[in-house]
Design a binder for these strands. Sequence first.
DNA 1: CTGTTAGCGCATTCAC
DNA 2: GTGAATGCGCTAACAG
Lengths: 377, 377
Amino acid sequence: MSTTPLAATRRATITDVAREAGTGKTSISRYLNGEMSVLSPELRARIEAAIERLDYQPNQMARGLKRGRNRLIGMLLADLTNPYSIEVLQGVEAACQALGLMPLICHAANEVEMERRYLQLLTTYRVEGVIVNALGVREETLRPVGGGGIPAVLVDRSVEGLVADMVGLDNRAAAELGTRHLLEHGFDDIWFVVQPFEQVSSRQLREAAFREVMRGVAGKDEGGQGGARGHTLVLNLADPEAVEHALAELDRAIDAAGRSDGAVANAIDNAIDNVSSSSVGKPARIALFAANAPVALCLALHLKARYGADWQARVALLSIDDPEWAELTGVTTIRQPTYEIGYRAVEFLHERIEGVQTTARDCLLPGELIVRASTSR
Amino acid sequence: MSTTPLAATRRATITDVAREAGTGKTSISRYLNGEMSVLSPELRARIEAAIERLDYQPNQMARGLKRGRNRLIGMLLADLTNPYSIEVLQGVEAACQALGLMPLICHAANEVEMERRYLQLLTTYRVEGVIVNALGVREETLRPVGGGGIPAVLVDRSVEGLVADMVGLDNRAAAELGTRHLLEHGFDDIWFVVQPFEQVSSRQLREAAFREVMRGVAGKDEGGQGGARGHTLVLNLADPEAVEHALAELDRAIDAAGRSDGAVANAIDNAIDNVSSSSVGKPARIALFAANAPVALCLALHLKARYGADWQARVALLSIDDPEWAELTGVTTIRQPTYEIGYRAVEFLHERIEGVQTTARDCLLPGELIVRASTSR
DNA sequence: CTGTTAGCGCATTCAC
DNA sequence: GTGAATGCGCTAACAG
């Protein structure tokens, strides 16, 4: 049996160690803070021994109280269910590790009220900064942070009039990338499916970019992508009834597109039914563009239930985010540089905490298109 | 413009509030702790106003220091990448919410060294308890917790000689359930695939239960499940080379099984080739039993890459854990009561924190078999 | 090089 | 009912 420290009941304090080492608290404190040069080797050894003997561990809370900094930062996540979140988190953790910070992770489970509560809780714990990836990102809820409050950096969202850094995907570029990919592969009936916009700027940006590209090709009648139509479908995942309605609308479109022979035979159809590219009378090649992984999953599950395992023969699916099941099902995706997003967010925050006072910065990282069978057969 | 508090630079303290309200700190403290009955309505109103005006929020750290309890608990997770973890986490969060606790989430990313560091960090922050779901769950690493140290509850793992509660899946029953299911559906060549056992008791238990069931049927020659063979394959996901080797072994078995006509036609094969059920000369119906979701994903990805989208016609896959892609790909699973596991873990911990001193308890919850196309066609 | 002193923000006796 | 005093565990001047 190894030497179990006596202090099984109460943790040793700095005072205990000082007494045990036969010295004052200051020296212990110095030892703890690495000010070795000012300690005689002899004293140092005694302290070391005492700490060992008492199994002493300094109380971070007390340190924080005194120093005014506790090395804690808050990480507010809207939805841990979204693989995006946990990937970003990994970057955050790595950066924290490197910078000696400790992330306090708060999961708001898509509830704005919870976000508010957690934000308050974080300030109450006097975190030195917060990384926010939430829904209710608006000036009022974020009052306590940014600007005059504690340093903050926004992930995947931006809000006007708030002094805070922001890091995330280059949403415009990503949405354009995806839309162009679909157009180039001959899809001419494209549905952009997105959760309710609320205050989430990334959703708005992605949809806007999609719409803009589609508007650009709407006029052109020649070329492979003439007359393509774009639609936006809002899918409120939190409301089953709304989901059902939205999916029903989608089903009608898919059924209509597949009327003549099914989408797989479209190339042939085009050759035969070679009328003008007006969308009437010609079976459209239909594609779904999911604004993120949760939406994509919802769509895929529905389509599989409705059209069977071979659903991808009828509809193409492209998604922003690259969940683990994408490779498995052959769904084309746009992968976000999630790890880097998290890492950079912490770096930004750290700079602000250390007092590097700059104006609010935006860091837009590019997405990577990963073409899979879904859109390329 | 609403009244922005002046204290943009320094947070207000209890002293500020006392001065602002023209009273002593004690009354403020009483107000904060809800001892309303001891405050004159008049003073109470003044305090309320002062707090409002200064946007005062009590410092939890200081409170914790004084009270000796900070309402923080640690949640140590081996692998956030595993959907199991984040589902458990949701239960944990809900329970914490209900009990007024704040979980400090630590992600060890499958590194034992990190687990050690985080455990130390947690004690350093004087958390009131820890919930541990880690790899290196052994007596020595857990020295600081359990027994004489801070209260602890283990999730999905148990370790001898440690005074701590444990809550998790009934691994024996779950593995038996899955194995029996496969046998009943005529699979007679079953591979149990699991990560290296290390200190993880659940892996050991699952494999042991599987092996026991297989041993039970190995002798019987009659009945639909006579002569079925069971194998255990260890898949070290952390080592790509090891994975490759293991998968190659699996491939050989699958190729051998599918030699005559492919697994789908097995019922017919059985009727024609009606020799004794000795496993030679008869194409076996092969099934993979994944010990958890990460393993299942690895297998599925490999099989898809090797045998194409239709891989499930050749091999059946059953997995403990029910990841989001299971429904999408039609893989049979055994779902764990993850949410409840998390919730119960916090409840147990809370009781211990509150001093309910009992002997170590084990809480085994049942898994639910979800039959999908993979094993039932 | 080392020890003494004085708080950090708050809760808790204990008097008034 | 209310407030002044004391100390939680630690750090940061200050002295020696």
